[in-house]
Structure formats: structure tokens, C-alpha cells
Design a protein around this nucleic acid. Structure first.
Lengths: 188, 188
DNA sequence: AGAGTTGATGTCACTTGATGACATCAACGT
DNA sequence: ACGTTGATGTCATCAAGTGACATCAACTCT
């Protein structure tokens, strides 16, 4: 793949993460990241669309995993069951990186710009899940609602897991949240 | 309030909206907005935190209305019923401005930065609703879930209403979406 | 081996968003 | 009149991001 000085992308990512943790996201300049990585600022923007994007490199992979899980769910399964399968695959994808998730979540919570980026990634994910549900034959208003609701569960559960001590499994936290959801939405 | 040339804030808001519609958000510069409003670019940033914020001036009022509706719901009402009351007040707040909402929604959909800002405003709103539910005595995981779920309904319904022809009432669209939600979340 | 190709990087110049420090000016009260 | 006050202008500066073009190492082909 890369030629004579491999890993420029990786060095940039590492340097950025280090600096973000050391002195905070807003207090870190792209010039500093590039310098620590041994490249020019211009090169940074060839690997990352902007300063925030460093923290969201894995979002594409996560989305692909969840959409695939949605696709592999039994054809007869109702929408919310398929969404649950997607959440399970997400738990599988993220469950092993509690320390990293905690650090990342702390950075995001401390900075509005990063919150915005996080939110749009999650929204994109919700949109992908909606499309996946439509592909399963779920009609239009239901597909969107099921996907959005599933992502609401994801947000609540993931934040609780990443912020907390990490003594419980992510999959378990998500399952619990999903269980509570159906009890709540029934009494109205 | 303002002294010798009143309405600088209003002129800036109008000028910005005009330019955003005329040539798009990204293609509009703060210098142009300020020029059309008859002030200095520096003054723009004294009224708006950044270029995007012009489109989100009303979000504080909407949030206050919804939180108040939540507060005024019968104390014995279950969480989702109180959230429904908040959604009704939102429909009341926004229902009369279909043309403006449509234009605004078109601008937002055409620009990722604006989508990000929209999302964080909605997330803040969800957070405020969560707090409001806690104040009603709703315990912690349920409060967050009910609020997030309610906002999911809001997003789906509002987008459908603002993007669509506007032949149906916003309150009706929201009510329908809420109805579909409970049917979906039961069969799992 | 030598020449050209290719893809990643460097260099330079520039626009734009955003902010801090300080000056100014009109209205207001005294 | 005079000083205060609050909004605005002026000036300088930083940082993000981008386009155009040069450069250089590695690879290919003969």
C-alpha cells in the first residue's frame, strides 16, 4: 500500500490522539499534530477531512458491521428484533475496547464540536439502519422509527457503559436498555 | 433595548437568511452578511456565536415551551404521556410556520455543518426533557429512554411535515408517529 | 542500468472563520 | 456641559482548510 515511509496515517492518528489527551482538543493545533507525526500540516488534511475526523475513523466499520447484522437477521423477524441483532453486533464490535472508548467519550463530552460530529455519525448510522430495514420490506414510517429508536437505545447504553466502571458487558447493558424500552412505550 | 440604530441583530439575521437562500450557506461569507446589514463583520460575532447559529435562534424558546408543557402535565401521567404533551406544545409552537420551516429545513439538509448544529440542538432538547422527567420522579434509565424516544418521534414527524406539502397539521403527524411507535415496540 | 510513470508529500499562497485589545461614538443621567 | 455606559468600529492575529504546483522516492518497462 504505502511506499517509502509507511504509516503516515497511523502516525498522524496517534499523534493527534496523544495531543488531544495531553492538552485537550481545542488547545491542539493541526500544525502541532503534523510536527509530532513528522509531516506537513497539508498532509494531515490528505488523510483526515478535518481536525475532528481523527476520532471517528472506526465509524464506517461499525456501521458496516451493524448493517450486515441487520441483513443477516431472519427474514421473518419483526423490525425491532432485527435492530436488536444490529445492536448486538455493535456490542461485539466495541465491547473489547472499554479503555479506549472511555478516553474517547471523555474527549467528546468536553468539546461541543466533537459532540456535533459524534451526533451526525450516529444519525448517519440511523439512516443506514433505516435503509437496511426498508430492504427487509419494512414500510416507510416504521423503518425510520425502529431505526431511530434503536439508536436511542444504543446512545443511552453505550454512554452508560463507556462512562461507567466497565464492570458490566456492553451487550448486557444494551439488552437491558432494550428491555426497559418496551415496558415504557406500552403504558400510554 | 438597543440605542441609536436599533435592530442590528434583526438586520443581521435577515441579511444572513436572504444570502443563505440566495446562494447557499457555504457560499455566503460573514463579510457579505455584515455588509448587507450595514455593520462590521466583528459585530456579527457579537450577536451570533458563529455563522450557523443564525438559523437556530428559536431553539431556546422551543425548548422552554416543551419543558413547560412537560412540567404542566398531570403528575400521575406516565412518562410517555408527559412527553406526548411536550410534543403537542412543540407542534403548537412550530405548526404555524410551515413556509419558514420548509426553507430552513432545505438549507439544513443541503449542508453537513448545519446538520451537525441541528442535531446538537435536538440532543440538548432531549437532555432538557430528560431532566424534566427526572423532576417528575421518573427514575434514571427510563427518563433518558422516554426523552430520546420522544425526540425520535419529533424528528421523524417534523421532517415529514416540513419536507412534505403541508396539507396535514404538524400535531396530527406527530400523533400518528407516536401511535405507530407503540405498535412497533411491542412485538419483540 | 536508465528513463519515464505514479502516487504521496512538500511548498506556497490564499480565503475565511473567529477572537482579543483597544478606540470611538451616540445616548443617557446628572 | 460632562462623564458614564453600552454598542460599534478598528486593527492585529491565529487557526482551519484549500487549490495549484513542484518534488521525490519507488516502481515498471525496456
Amino acid at each position: 500500500m504505502s511506499r517509502w515511509e509507511p504509516g503516515a496515517s497511523g502516525r498522524l492518528r496517534d499523534a493527534a490522539m496523544e495531543l488531544y489527551v495531553e492538552r485537550g482538543f481545542a488547545q491542539t493545533t493541526v500544525a502541532e499534530i503534523a510536527e509530532r507525526a513528522g509531516v506537513t500540516p497539508r498532509t494531515f488534511f490528505r488523510y483526515f477531512a478535518d481536525k475532528r475526523e481523527v476520532l471517528f475513523g472506526g465509524s464506517t466499520l461499525l456501521q458496516e458491521a451493524m448493517v450486515e447484522a441487520l441483513h443477516n437477521a431472519p427474514p421473518a423477524a419483526p423490525p425491532m428484533v432485527a435492530v436488536t441483532a444490529a445492536l448486538d453486533s455493535a456490542a461485539d464490535f466495541l465491547g473489547g475496547r472499554h479503555d479506549f472508548s472511555r478516553q474517547r467519550q471523555a474527549l467528546i463530552k468536553a468539546n461541543p464540536e466533537l459532540q456535533e460530529r459524534e451526533l451526525i455519525k450516529l444519525a448517519t448510522l440511523a439512516s443506514a439502519l433505516t435503509d437496511g430495514l426498508r430492504l427487509r420490506g419494512v414500510p416507510d414510517p416504521e423503518a425510520g422509527l425502529a431505526a431511530e429508536t434503536g439508536m436511542a437505545v444504543f446512545r443511552v447504553a453505550f454512554d452508560s457503559w463507556a462512562t461507567g466502571a466497565g464492570d458490566r458487558e456492553l451487550a448486557q447493558v444494551m439488552s437491558d436498555a432494550m428491555g426497559r424500552l418496551s415496558s415504557i412505550t406500552q403504558d400510554r
